[in-house]
């Protein structure tokens, strides 16, 4: 240090300091704000643009060129990236045919294309964002018993007590929740796809959503406590098994018992 100080009066020193300062400012400038952000913005707008292209090709024929929807087709303004990620990511959209409801199937678009579409729809009007991994740590943030209680109050009437799904009116149905990805369940609650109502974050908090997911994952992984589960759909299958297997076996034995031995 002393060595440098000794040279500070050196004529070149002024230029050097000035140069370093300029460099520092220049670097700092690039580091700090505009150009980096510009790159990111650039990437996003690229995704939005890509999404717009996919949208125009694959979605606009129903949802309209500006995603405004029609009397038959819902608008996508304000549905948010989460909704797109759910509908397209589970293959429900684009619709395969005009059934009573869109079914889960192999997605038409890959992950990148889905993300682009989501970015495009989100850019039109603000809506729920796609939850990130940190928001979905149900193992850490969920409470399984609380989740069960919330599930029975809010969800079991459609999806059945063990998330096996159930009937709605006119042939519509609530799908089974077994084996569904955590993110998709979360997004469904957040956005209320199709017949399902919306469970916004202020009515059912994110932590409560994770509790319900934890409960469902628990049921999904629960091993048989009393043997084969018979589908977890209540007494109907039990009655069927009682008649067919139970009474069937007993009648079989009765026939053996009544038959004459050779």
């Amino acid at each position: 240090m002393k060595k440098i100080l000794r040279h500070r009066r050196h004529p070149i020193a002024h230029f050097l300091v000035l140069g370093i300062a300029l460099l520092a400012i220049g670097f700092g400038y690039t580091l700090l704000s505009p150009s980096n952000a510009a790159i990111a913005t650039n990437a996003r707008s690229q995704a939005v643009e890509e999404g717009r292209q996919i949208f125009l090709k694959g979605c606009s024929s129903c949802h309209g060129l500006n995603a405004e929807g029609s009397t038959q087709v819902p608008t996508l303004l304000g549905v948010g990236a989460a909704s797109v990620d759910f509908q397209v990511g589970t293959g429900r959209m684009p619709l395969a045919n005009n059934g009573v409801q869109a079914m889960r199937k192999k997605p038409v678009y890959n992950a990148e294309e889905t993300a682009a579409l989501a970015a495009y729809v989100a850019s039109l009007s603000p809506g729920p964002a796609i939850p990130n991994a940190a928001q979905l740590n149900y193992e850490r943030d969920g409470n399984i018993a609380e989740g069960g209680q919330l599930f029975r109050t809010n969800c079991a009437m459609c999806h059945n007590y063990a998330g096996q799904g159930g009937a709605l009116t006119q042939g519509k149905y609530a799908p089974s929740l077994m084996g569904v990805e955590v993110k998709k369940m979360y997004e469904a609650m957040l956005t209320g796809p199709q017949s399902m109502p919306v469970f916004g974050d202020r009515a059912i908090s994110p932590q409560q959503k994770l509790s319900m997911i934890k409960f469902l994952k628990g049921i999904d992984a629960e091993k048989g406590q009393g043997g084969f589960s018979l589908g977890k759909v209540g007494p109907v299958t039990e009655g069927l098994v009682g008649w067919v297997l139970g009474l069937g076996l007993l009648i079989g034995v009765s026939v053996w018992l009544g038959a004459k031995s050779k």
């Binding site: 109050t153 809010n154 109502p197 919306v198 469970f199 916004g200 009515a203």
Partner: peptide, 21 residues
């Protein structure tokens, strides 16, 4: 208030399409 956790709700807490028990 919500069932079972007893949170009071404001109108803005419910979006169109929302349900609350």
């Amino acid at each position: 208030v919500t069932d079972p956790d007893g949170k009071p709700l404001k109108a803005s807490d419910l979006q169109v399409g929302a349900v609350a028990h």
